[in-house]
Nucleic acid binder design. Structure first.
Lengths: 188, 188
DNA sequence: GTCTATAAGTAGATAGAC
DNA sequence: GTCTATCTACTTATAGAC
């Protein structure tokens, strides 16, 4: 693998595991096997590296979500497919966890990928809720934008409650409740 | 204020703002105006201080929530009262944010207050959903435990999406959606 | 209880040779 | 592009005097 690539991948892993404040350049160098000189040659320090890593993680999450959103079946089923998708629950969300990092939220260039991901996600979920409403699957009194924001929040918050309990159970319960609330009937 | 008290309050502020990894003993000393010797005399280092601070924050959140839960009115209204309560949205949750801190989740003594808070919260919300269901306010097909977990998650996740957008709007939308989903009709 | 001194290791780079 | 050397400040304490 090329040097910049190895640096980005090592940074993605560390940001996911430790967050921005908990990730040191030294740790990135050790995990990637790259030397100090190379790192500062290819990237503008820790912030530049984090920016590249976060952009890639956000893009991957959007691609993965879109695969569920544009899949087959009725709108509520595609929402369910996204909510029930396999996840490394106790690791949390590689992008969402950075929203609790002071240096990330305070730096517009680091916060941008987070804003883009969650803005897109809320919109996309709102579209599906609107579609489900038109199709009569979802209660017509519900506001698609609001419910889209709720569904995006449930996933992020479910990671918080699961990590606090060191168990996937709170995550699964939160998703189950969300699906019941939008009136999705589990098959089988 | 007494010395241990000042240390705990300074630690609470810093943990809320910066998280565990982002909070140094030095910063705690500066904010509290206490000296190094005093700090290590009263507490067992950074972890001990964080433990005391987190326990207090969790207790405060439980007390504040219980005031809404045991207030007057129907169950759904008490849930709404809790969800709509005044919050420093862009600061996030002082306890929930620590669930993304590696050193917190990995240390049973630091994770305990988080587990207690969110375990209690899910149970308490589930109780209210069950009560609302019995009273006919809430759809009888809903599972109280699952919906309780969903409501607890919505709040935590709403902080994530709001901080990512540097705006309270995503938080408010998520809460609005949650209230619509449990069938709460806003008055006025 | 509080203070000052001390200390090994890390954080986050920069400089300049190769 | 990569390496080694170097640097200032911070991290997380401990020791022992007052």
């Amino acid at each position: 693998m090329a040097t910049p690539e190895r640096l980005i991948e090592a940074t993605r892993e560390l940001l996911w595991e430790r967050g921005y404040a908990g990730t040191s350049p030294k740790a990135i160098l050790q995990r990637s096997g790259v030397g100090v000189g190379s790192m500062y040659h290819h990237f503008d320090g820790k912030a530049g590296l984090a920016r590249a890593a976060t952009e890639r993680s956000a893009q991957e999450l959007m691609d993965a979500a879109e695969a569920h959103f544009s899949g087959p079946g009725p709108a509520t089923r595609r929402i369910a497919s996204y909510l029930l998708r396999e996840r490394d629950v106790l690791r949390g969300c590689p992008v969402g966890r950075l929203a609790m990092d002071y240096d990330v939220v305070e730096n517009p260039r680091l916060r941008a990928p987070l804003d883009e991901l969650f803005g897109w996600l809320r919109t996309r979920l709102a579209d599906l809720v609107a579609e489900g409403r038109s199709a009569g699957e979802i209660d017509a009194r519900l506001d698609p934008q609001a419910v889209g924001a709720t569904l995006a929040a449930v996933v992020q918050g479910a990671y918080v409650t699961a990590r606090s309990a060191e168990s996937t159970e709170p995550f699964e319960a939160a998703v189950r409740g969300a699906l019941q609330l939008i009136g999705y009937e589990e098959e089988c």
